[in-house]
Nucleic acid binder design. Structure first.
Lengths: 143, 143
DNA sequence: TTGAATTTATTGATATATCAATTATTATTG
DNA sequence: CAATAATAATTGATATATCAATAAATTCAA
């Protein structure tokens, strides 16, 4: 299995990189000034408006420090406003600006189509199996 | 399939990140002063001594610029020497220093064990299927 | 054989990842 | 209630990713 193991993790690395590059290219081509990481963080903030940054980070598989910096950029780009949280002054209250919703809505079909393209030729069964496998790997690496 | 798609790519992202973190932790714990990216590039250079940097980059799924910088670090850390290639002055000849081989040999069982741990509970059949799936995704994203 | 195109690699700018140290605030506990 | 611990987030340093611009050497074509 040794050789396969090697190929396996190489493929894993290459697959996610290929997908990220592909998705980023598509985003840019459509004229959005968001990286897919910024989009991911933004989406998590919208979906969970009450979460603290560290919870956002966890949901987006990101380091706290990265999230701090990504949020900085999102504020600078005018997608978010940030003020101190009224109930816990260690935290911040992040508010999406009005333009966010239009952008997210516009990005939605692109993301959907990207995923479909990337999974072309992979059946739902297979996808489920792969997904289970990945979950197992995640567990194995985190204990 | 939409919801699954989303979970699928989230899992993909999380799996490779979990594995990389796990592998990096193990490397450090064993006292090696290499990142896994440096190790990956170094290993490719050893395995293909005649390759140009751009070929190494491709094999390691890395950007040319990243490889340039990683090689700089490997030279600085005393794992490589670099001189101009005698047959093509645009290229460089990269030579591993003697200490490289010992280090790579010492890292080998760690990598092997990391992969085994990560794939614990995943059968060879499943791994093969996942691998095929990943290959399909890579192709889909690159055409 | 010169001039244009191609190849190989570097550099700069910006974004993200990671670890460690730090700050500010809140919670605990003695 | 004061001292301490825990929590939320930032900052600094270093590594890697990506894109664009550039430099140097080589190849090719007129």
């Amino acid at each position: 299995m040794e050789k396969l193991d090697q190929i396996f993790f190489y493929s894993l690395e290459k697959a996610i990189k290929s997908y990220r590059q592909f998705a980023q290219r598509t985003m840019m081509k459509q004229g959005f000034d968001l990286t897919i990481d910024q989009w991911l963080v933004l989406k998590n903030i919208i979906d969970h408006p009450e979460w603290a940054q560290n919870e956002i980070a966890e949901a987006a598989f990101k380091d706290f420090a990265s999230v701090t910096r990504i949020i900085e950029l999102l504020v600078k780009k005018g997608y978010l406003t940030r003020e101190i949280h009224p109930e816990d002054r260690r935290r911040f209250r992040l508010e999406p600006t009005p333009k966010v919703f239009g952008v997210l809505k516009a990005v939605e079909p692109i993301t959907k189509s990207n995923r479909e393209t990337a999974l072309n030729g992979v059946s739902e069964e297979e996808a489920k199996l792969v997904q289970q496998c990945l979950t197992k790997i995640i567990e194995n690496c985190n204990k």
